[in-house]
Amino acid sequence: MTPDALPARRSRRFAAVAGPTRVVFLALAGVILIGWALVAADGGQFLTLENVVGVQQRSAALGIVAVGQTLAILAGSLDLSVAYLISLTSLVAAETMAGQDSGIVAAIAAVAGVSVLVGLVNGLVITKLRVHAFIATLGVGLIIKGIVDHLYDGPAGRVPETFQHLGYDRIGPVPVSALLWAAVALTAWFLLSRTRYGYRVYAVGGDVEVARLSGVRTDRVVIVTHVLCSLCAGIAGLLLAARLGAGAPTVGTDGGYDLESIAAVVLGGTALAGGRGGVAGTVGGVLLLAVLDSVFNQLEVNSFFKDVVRGVVIVVAVAVYARRTGLLRGRRA
């Protein structure tokens, strides 16, 4: 390869990586525009403060989980246990707080502890026992579900008023929960693009064998990634506990956070096979889903129709990305 081929190659690589991210934000702008037009034609107001806040509120929990899921998927893995872990951590948080302000710190520590433990188990089962991530995290999810369902029939614990501020308070037009999401996303972005760990995640997700032969301790990367992914689910559990004022054994599964977070990540242009994509796209993907939701709510569309549209949108988006990367690959060949 001649040296002057390199910049061209890099720009193409850039197009492949940045492409889907740009597409998802363009799609987001498009949906906002169309939504605004449709709602206006319906005689309503779309870009009201209430709506903008609503979109952020709705997307915060899914957004935080999806950031963690992005890490897992980039590393060539995936995590189906997040929904159950969210339920579990919401209960752990509410039970530890028990309505007392003094319990908040202990509750956060307990949630972090539980999340790290679950992430470790996920990572170790995948790397050391060599169980496919799909089965490993599904199995761990079932284990958590069994324990939660065995111990709890309904909401339990109580979250003190001070902590409930996390759920619904806002600073100007920005809810605290959205700030939390932004902080999580920025941290993940920093880890992925500015640290050695981030480069290793891309390397492992791209080709685990090549990464191993290049001296990356691939097992360690996958384990750390799963711990981080579980921590994100734990943070979402804390947020949902703050919103509900209690822990709930079905809050995670009712929200469908497992498959929905994977869908949001893929909608954001991250390749399901790993190694390509990033956090920015995921944020766009989550916002896109939330704006769609908001438009449908305003137009009072049947909730089942929403599912249909959502399914179509996800498949179409990924088909578009597949086409783009296919074209790029074709040009290179």
């Binding site: 761990v140 999810g141 079932l142 069994g146």
Partner: peptide, 9 residues
């Protein structure tokens, strides 16, 4: 409920 746990393991 515990059936799920056993199943997972």
């Amino acid at each position: 409920a515990l059936e799920f746990t056993v199943q997972g393991v």
